[in-house]
Design a protein around this nucleic acid. Structure first.
Length: 315
DNA sequence: AATGACGTCAACCGCAATGGA
DNA sequence: TTCCATTGCGGTTGACGTCAT
């Protein structure tokens, strides 16, 4: 299997994008769609490899991207989905529609992972690092863990299929719209009837300073494609909503854990005391963390096996 | 004010998956 | 079925900003 030679070509620019490059890429995609990424740079007059262009588009220039701080709901969703899916960033991103996989990955690595580690939870397994005392107190942990693992595999496969469908649908939708709006050079119209609200994103690149106030994203209808997307999105949202809802069934579980997580990211929480506890007590505050860990595990295992409560089983 | 440590995140690298010929 | 070009994905890097000393 040969590697793509595009990145090996000499003379291609690398590194941060300039506003001029952003404009060129944006203008080209608005008018023609991205088509083949490999041939795009030449056609768009960019001295970049196609891969670099694709990355810049998907991670930054795309109009349907929400930037800025993650809110509590998003943080919870990421942690919950990570517990299910592991480092499947693209699958996780599917359920945070306006966030890119790269952004989620970065956020996890720089914020959420550290928070879990600080609480003595293994960010890979989402289990306490020192499992022995806690697991014995919980009882049946290994059985539950196996169940969780099995379910995660099943869900993982399902999510992949869903993500693929959603991607294909979005692509179809976008291409349809681009071809029908070729007269507009500065207004990028993307249609999605699944979106209740029309949003105008004003994005400002930390690298370049291109303003997207002109790249108005207007969601107008392309009926068949949008209907298709709608259906997929509704099904997806139904599932993820019920899943997250189940997951959050033990309210003091993850939510409590997050609220009590307390590190520099406590910015979104009013958790001064917890921050103090987390940072000043170091690894000594075992009682505090054990309680958190138990809540955390409770939330996961309630999700896996809700039988003790009156929750409806998911499967 | 200087500088070193640390945190953040855009961008790159390279492998895997996919799809068309 | 096989080969190969292309795309997707996740891990990693490095530039830049901020904070601490």
């Amino acid at each position: 299997m040969g590697r793509s030679p595009c990145c090996d070509k000499m003379g291609l620019k690398k590194g941060p994008w300039t506003s001029e490059e952003d404009q060129k890429l944006l203008a080209y995609i608005e008018e023609h769609g991205h088509g083949s990424w490999r041939s795009l740079p030449e056609k768009a007059g960019l001295h970049r490899c196609g891969k670099s262009c694709r990355l810049r588009w998907t991670n930054y220039l795309r109009p349907d991207i929400k930037r800025g701080k993650f809110n509590l709901q998003e943080e919870q969703t990421i942690i919950q989905l990570h517990a299910l899916l592991g480092n499947r960033w693209s699958a996780i991103a599917t359920h945070l529609p306006k966030r890119t996989d790269n952004e989620i990955k970065n956020y996890w690595n720089t914020h959420l992972k550290k928070r879990l580690v600080k609480m003595g939870i293994d960010p890979v397994t989402h289990k306490p690092k020192n499992e022995t005392p806690l697991s014995s107190s919980l009882g049946g942990l290994s059985k539950n863990a196996a169940t969780l693992s099995h379910m995660a595999q099943w869900e993982s496969a399902r999510l992949e299929a869903e993500a693929r469908l959603a991607r294909e649908s979005k692509l179809l939708l976008y291409q349809t719209k681009v071809s029908s709006s070729s007269s507009s050079h500065h207004h990028l119209n993307i249609t999605s009837s699944s979106s209740d609200h029309q949003q105008q994103h004003q994005l400002e690149s930390p690298t370049s300073t291109v303003s997207f106030s002109e790249a108005k994203t207007e969601f107008v209808g392309s009926s068949s494609a949008s209907t298709c997307l709608n259906m997929i999105k509704e099904a997806e949202n139904d599932w993820i909503s019920s899943t997250i809802h189940e997951f959050q069934g033990v309210e003091e579980g993850l939510t409590g854990l997050l609220l009590g997580g307390g590190d520099s990211l406590g910015r979104s929480f009013s958790a001064d005391k917890n921050e103090t506890a987390g940072e000043t007590s170091g690894d000594c505050n075992n009682g505090y963390y054990e309680e958190d860990n138990k809540n955390y595990l409770d939330s996961i295992f309630s999700f896996v096996d809700p039988s003790p409560s009156d929750s409806t089983p998911l499967f």
